[in-house]
Structures are given as structure tokens and as C-alpha cells.
Design a protein around this nucleic acid. Structure first.
Lengths: 341, 341
DNA sequence: TGTCACTGGTGATACGTGTCACTATGGTTG
DNA sequence: CAACCATAGTGACACGTATCACCAGTGACA
């Protein structure tokens, strides 16, 4: 009752009255096979529930059909959704993905990626957590390694709309709403997304400060990790005369730390302080006050990342990204501020 | 420069001056090989960077060495951490895991699991999201399918400490603190964890109601999904004379919906209402007030789940779970309530 | 001394597939 | 009618490993 031997292509061949080679040609669609025979083979395969043995196929073709995805346990973005998108894209391209979770320092992660790349059982590697540039490659001798966190830089260099551009929109809207003093709570600068948001913030404030008629003040940039606690600490260290101030946090986890600290200091939000986050985490709509944030389509991002990887390992042109993946969600934490239009 | 053919066991054999069979025996540790020869083979393998071809091995052994993990995108627990734990356990047991993300109804998920099980390329399947019992099996003809969400039921039947028992501790502590009116906001009853928490709550209140000198009132159980919005709605529908009431939510996402609704209704927490969550989500320490919750070691849970699966497919006894994976984290949302000791 | 058990190792084979080289069969053309 | 070609299909082989059957040598023991 236990081990029913799975049917092979020879079984199918016997049943269809053809040779095993013919079955193989039918299934790969490569040889020249008459429609009648093709039909007969397909029926035979169907009838006995034949499924090609992937191990044998992969030995013959020397392609494993497997991709590795490196995930972390850091509370950044929504890796679960990215994974879902990547998983779907991989399936569409005929690949299976294998997940490898890794924490530790960026050096540890890089080490792990190199190890996986050298292992030779993956055709490509996609990482959701940052690694040192040494590990990244787009082909050649070793399998391509792509960092999903490096998008922004790629896009920036390729002239596409960078994902952090919405940071400018946020700042503009807050200026229009009358805010003059700004603070950015940055995320771990290992992440390209954190760097992009920070850089955009800095550049934007500089430019506005130069253009503006009224004096615009930046209290600078604080923080260098993704934890709510670091954001809270940064807020608690602000001088007493700080508010009113507009705090732009690099993600929602930092933003909730800001909210908490404001409450602890007796500052009202959005009265004394306004706050924005990023990522549209599920809890953000239910904090008091609810959190203005940037909604990111993580599933689409994961899907796109995987398509980029597949394109790279097939030597195809990288697919263009679809429509905008992000939009600002205005909520209570920014008070009356709204987009200019 | 492109395709350097990877070395095979024959290359190792030639280099070590032995037969290919000997190399195989050394690497699998099965034959009788002299220490000297073993050493020589290992050195040779090391020197040319030999790695066994898994496809060839798996064809020969008829074992794929691969397990599938089904994840969802539902905001329950911390699947990322569970995945990390499961990933580690699988690696320890010599298996590779392949992730497949699936959303949709429980029927869709079940369909997908059955499909993967029938595919024949996985030796076992672990699912983090609930599926219909039809799909679950622990061996026999098809590969074993184990639902990581069904733990509680297994533990309950085997007499171990059930994970929902801390619900009783929560209720007790709140009774001691003087609370007399209770409400449970339940999660999706598809999940065994949600059912367990609900059942424990109901049983506990019934028992206390019978024993107690003072009248204990349960406002019943509301909700049947994991969304903060459903919890909020449930709270908004409470009659005006409801507080003071102690609200025990099935997880932190529900709890933050409760907090939000309480604020909207003008009820203070923990003054008018006290609230507890579950899972110790990262945001829970930073809400206003911070959230009393149950800390769950998801990584250990995922690790344990994978070990159960591996034991099942090897026909071994299921490993006993280690020490307690859960503990209550008392925070502001329950005011002065503390454990009895 | 003959035999037995044991150690350390070899040669051959099968796993299931994709693909190369080749053949038989008609059909078309000179 | 001979020569050629396209079509449809076959037989054989190789991929890299694990394992079975077998063999040479060595010491122990009757």
C-alpha cells in the first residue's frame, strides 16, 4: 500500500504504442510529431497520471529549475507579501523557489548568499535583505544574484521614477499646510530604500530652503535602524522647544515609535506634531491618531523583482515596471494636510 | 569563461586514486573504508571543490529531499519567523524547503495542497494556513501533510500544555484586579489557534461564573476574522452602558482595533476598558496605551512544526516540544492587573 | 594446512530523461 | 524511372550517483 512506483515516460510510450523518445519529443514540443500521435501520447500520459521526473530531467538538462530567495526577519516592508508575489512570478516562469531565512549582520548575510551561489544548485538568487555588493552579479560564471532592495538605485540610474519620490510630495504638502520645521527618522542605511528616502528628504529640504520665501528649518536626520524604539528615543532627545515639528519617518514601525514618544512628552498629534510613515502597515489605520503613510504594493514589487531575476538569467531584457506601485494615504496624523491638487 | 563543468565524484576518485564507488561510500558514510583512504578522498574532494549533484543523487535514491511550505498573506502570527524556524529545522534534517504562497478561500488552499501532494516532487508538506482536514495525512501512499496551525488540537489530545491555556491566566488576573464583565474578540475560526483561544475563554468564564461569589458577566464572543476593522466594528456596536469591560482579543491586530474603537467611543484604556492581545506584535509596545499580550516564540514554533513533519515522514516518534513557548507580557492596557504571584 | 570471517575496496548497473544519429515512408522533381 | 527531400519516428547513449555482487588479502582458529 505504500510505494506505488510512479509511471515513467516508458510506461506512457508502451501504452501509446510509440517509443520513449517520441514521448519525450511530444512533451517538450521539439521534434516533428504528427498531431494524431501527439494526441495519443497525451491521452496515454493523462490516463496513467504521468508526471515527468524532475530529477532526471534536471540531470539531463543540467538545469535545476530552482531559484533561492533570501529573506530576513527584520520588520521592514512586508516580506510575506513580497514572497507571495515572487512565488507567483517564479511559478509563471516555470521555476520553483526555495526560501532561506537568514539573520545576523550584513556580512553574515553576504557570506550566506555567496555560499548558496557557489553551491551550484540554484540558477539564480533573489534577496530581500541587503548584502554587500560583492555578492551581487548578473550572470557570467556564477548564478545571477539580485537584491530586491536595490531597486531604487537601479531605477534612479535608469531614469525611472524612483520610489522615494513620494517623499517630496509629502514634504511639499506639509509645507503648504504651514509646517516649517522638519525632522526625518531614517531606517537602517544598509537598505537602499532607507537611503533613498533619506537622500530625497535631505535634497528636498535643501532645495525648498533655498527657494522658499519663508525660512525652512530641518532638525536634521536621526536614527539608523528599523526599530520603533530607536525612533522613540530620537524623539525623546529632542529639545523641549522643538514642536511644532513635522516628522517624516522612514516606515510605519518608526512612525509608531514617534507617536508614542510624542504622547509621552505631552505633545499632541497632529496638533503640536505631525507624523508620516511608510509601507502602509496594517496597524497604521488604527493607531491614535491614524497614520499618514505611503501604500506600497509589496506583492507587485516581489513579482517584479522575480521577473527581473528571471530575465537576467535568461539573458533577456529586463521587463519594465508596470504602473505606479505607491500612493500616499492621508490620515489623521498629518491633520489637514492634503495633496496639492 | 562561462560554463566550467562542475567536478563529479569520478574526478574525485581519479584524484584520490580510488574508484568512484569508494568516493560514494566515503561521502555517504555507509561502506567500510579505512581512515587513510577516507581522509585522502575527503582531501581530494575539498581540493577541487566537489559538491554532489543533487539531481543525480535524488534520481538514484528516489528521494527528492525537498519539502513544501505553504504560507499565506493573512496577518496572523508571524509567518516570517515561523518560516525562519522551519527553514532551519529542515536544513538540520538535510531537507530543502520550497515555499509556495497561496491566498484565497480555505477551499482554494486545500486544492493547492492536494495538487502539490499529488505532484510527487515533495516528500512532505507543511502549511502555515489552515486547510480542510481532507488534505491532511501523516503518511501512507501520499506524502505527509501537516498543518502548523493544528498544533493546539494535537497537544490538547495528547495532554500536553495547550497554548491557549494562558487565556485562563489572563482572565484570572483580570478577575483578581476587579473586573467582572468580559468580552472576547475572536479570530477566524478556520484557525485552530483562534478556536482554542475562544474555547478556553468560554470554558473559563463558565467555570468562574459557577464558582465565583460575585456575579461574572460575559458579553459573549464577537468577531470571526483576523482584521482590526472587524474588532473595531464589534466594539462600536456594544451598547452604551457596556463599560467597564475587559476585552480579550485573539491577537494584537484585533486588539489595536479595540483600542481604536474605545478611543472613538470616548472610553479610556485602561480606565473604562482593559484590553489584551496575543502574539506580541512589534507595534504592541508603542500603542497608546501599550498592549498587554502573549509573547509567542514563532521561530521555535516553526522549528518544532518542521521537526514534527520530518519525524512523520521518517516514521519516527514525534519529538516532544521543548520548554514553554509563550509568556504573558503585561503592559499598560490592563492597568494594574498583574499575575497572581 | 585448510577454512572461515572480516576488512577494504572494485566493477557494473540502474535510475528516467533529452537528444543525436539514423531509418523508413511517401511525395515531388528531373 | 532514378534521385532527392521532408516527415515521422526509433534506437542508443549519457548525465552523476548509490548500491549490489564480487574479489583480494589477512589473520584466527580448529
Amino acid at each position: 500500500m505504500s510505494t506505488a512506483v510512479p509511471p515513467t515516460s516508458r510506461d506512457v510510450a508502451r501504452l501509446a504504442g510509440v517509443s520513449q523518445a517520441t514521448v519525450s519529443y511530444v512533451l517538450t514540443g521539439k521534434g516533428s510529431i504528427s498531431p494524431a500521435t501527439r494526441e495519443r501520447v497525451l491521452r496515454a500520459a493523462e490516463s496513467i497520471g504521468y508526471r515527468p521526473n524532475l530529477a532526471a530531467r534536471s540531470m539531463r538538462t543540467r538545469r535545476s529549475g530552482r531559484l533561492a530567495v533570501i529573506t530576513g526577519v527584520v520588520a521592514v516592508g512586508n516580506q510575506m507579501r513580497m514572497l507571495a508575489g515572487a512565488s507567483r512570478a517564479a511559478a509563471e516562469a516555470g521555476y520553483a523557489i526555495e526560501t532561506s531565512s537568514v539573520d545576523g549582520s550584513v556580512a553574515d548575510r553576504t557570506e550566506r548568499v555567496l555560499e548558496l551561489a557557489a553551491g551550484g544548485q540554484y540558477e539564480g538568487i533573489l534577496t530581500f535583505v541587503p548584502v554587500l555588493p560583492d555578492a551581487l552579479s548578473d550572470g557570467g560564471d556564477s548564478p545571477p544574484v539580485l537584491a530586491a532592495t536595490a531597486f531604487d538605485e537601479q531605477m534612479r540610474s535608469s531614469g525611472e521614477l524612483a520610489e522615494a519620490d513620494l517623499m517630496e510630495v509629502l514634504v511639499h504638502a506639509l509645507v503648504v499646510a504651514g509646517h516649517r520645521r522638519f525632522l526625518h527618522v531614517a531606517g537602517s542605511q544598509e537598505f537602499a530604500s532607507a537611503r533613498a528616502r533619506r537622500d530625497t528628504y535631505v535634497a528636498c529640504l535643501e532645495r525648498l530652503g533655498a527657494e522658499s520665501h519663508e525660512p525652512l528649518q530641518s532638525l536634521g536626520v536621526v536614527g539608523n535602524e528599523w526599530s520603533a524604539e530607536s525612533a522613540r528615543q530620537a524623539m525623546l532627545e529632542l529639545p523641549d522647544d522643538a514642536p511644532p515639528v513635522a516628522v517624516l519617518a522612514a516606515n510605519d514601525m518608526l512612525a509608531i515609535g514617534v507617536l508614542r514618544a510624542a504622547a509621552e512628552r505631552g505633545w499632541t498629534v497632529p496638533g503640536d506634531v505631525v507624523v508620516t510613515g511608510w509601507d502602509n502597515a496594517a496597524f497604521g489605520a488604527y493607531t491614535m491618531p491614524s497614520l499618514t503613510t505611503v501604500d506600497v504594493d509589496f506583492q507587485a514589487a516581489g513579482h517584479h523583482a522575480m521577473r527581473l531575476l528571471v530575465a537576467a538569467l535568461r539573458g533577456e531584457e529586463p521587463p519594465a515596471r508596470g504602473s505606479a506601485l505607491q500612493r500616499i494615504v492621508w490620515r489623521e496624523s498629518t491633520g489637514a494636510a492634503r495633496p496639492p491638487d
